Amino acid sequence: MKHRLPVGAHPVREGSGAWSKPRAFAHRVRSYGIASFIVLAACLQVVRAAEQAPQLSPAKTAAQADLVDIRSLVPDIAEDIKYAGRDNFVGRPVHGYLAPKCLLLRPAADALARVEHDLRAQHYRLKLWDCYRPARAVADFVHWAHDLSDQRTKPQHYPNLDKSKLLGVYIAPVSGHSRGATVDLTMERCAADGTHCAPLDMGTGFDWFGVRAHTDAPGISATQLANRHRLRAAMEHEGFKNYSMEWWHYTLAPEPTPHTLYDVPVQ
């Protein structure tokens, strides 16, 4: 959970006021007692977290946010942008996706293009499922998660879980995708001439909620595990880090704008 200060409040910074002076610090401990001091320390942690809370960019267009279409770098990269259609866990186009495009901040787009270039030399290719994700799309996910009556996609995406368990574990109110440097993707193996590409067996489809989607999940076959590791090695070579609970999820490190969220539509 992200904590924010009330409007008009000012954060207390380390090294200012009485907390920077050892005598005053000790006096506070003696005056308030250990229990009260623990509460005060917890409050300071909340303040520090608030200082790092992500801020929403005022950008209204992809150009203003410095988001670029990956196909401006790799015109024929394989895409199946799930949230622009109905083949996803919501079962319909998601708010903010007006076109099936992969937008990323330039450093992430450049790095992803390098991954694709390296893989093609080995007769593999990437297939993209999601890239930058507008903040309004994340809000749409949360709204869907609260509607427990809508169970249409349970067999495909969360067959072993109650929908009430998705919020907070698999669906969060803030997504790293909204920072413009995270991608969801898989790999394909192609013929020597680059045609007839077929997806590798990864053990689950996209947005499968459960332990089986963990990158090193127990119970998957040796081939499936090797395919996940092959993808991870290719992505790590260009600076992407895997989220271990989702074999398809990668974020460029360090992120270009780690404390900025974007909400421009994908169009």
Rank of each mutant, 00 (worst) to 15 (best):
A9H: 07
A84I: 08
R230H: 13
S149H: 14
A135Y: 15
R71K: 15
T195E: 10
S178M: 02
D201V: 10
F240H: 13
L231W: 08
T182I: 14
P254I: 06
L5N: 03
H157Q: 04
L200G: 04
E236W: 01
V142W: 02
Q64L: 12
C190A: 09
Y83A: 06
D80L: 06
H259Q: 12
V264G: 10
G194P: 05
G194F: 08
A59T: 13
S164P: 00
D66W: 03
H157S: 04
T251E: 07
P254T: 06
D118I: 00
V211C: 00
C131Y: 11
A99S: 14
G91V: 00
V74M: 01
R152A: 13
R92L: 00
E188D: 10
R152F: 01
A26R: 06
Y170T: 06
L98A: 14
E51S: 09
V183E: 15
E79T: 14
C190L: 08
L200N: 05
V39T: 02
Y170D: 09
L44W: 08
A145G: 10
A137V: 10
N227V: 14
G91W: 00
D66N: 14
D130M: 14
H146Y: 09
K241V: 05
W129F: 15
Y32C: 00
A41N: 10
L44H: 11
P100L: 10
E238Y: 10
A222W: 04
V211Q: 11
A145I: 09
K82E: 12
T186P: 03
D216W: 07
E236S: 12
Q156F: 03
D140C: 03
F206L: 15
M1N: 05
L128S: 11
D80I: 01
P265C: 04
P173T: 00
W129G: 15
K60Q: 15
S164H: 09
S178C: 01
F240L: 13
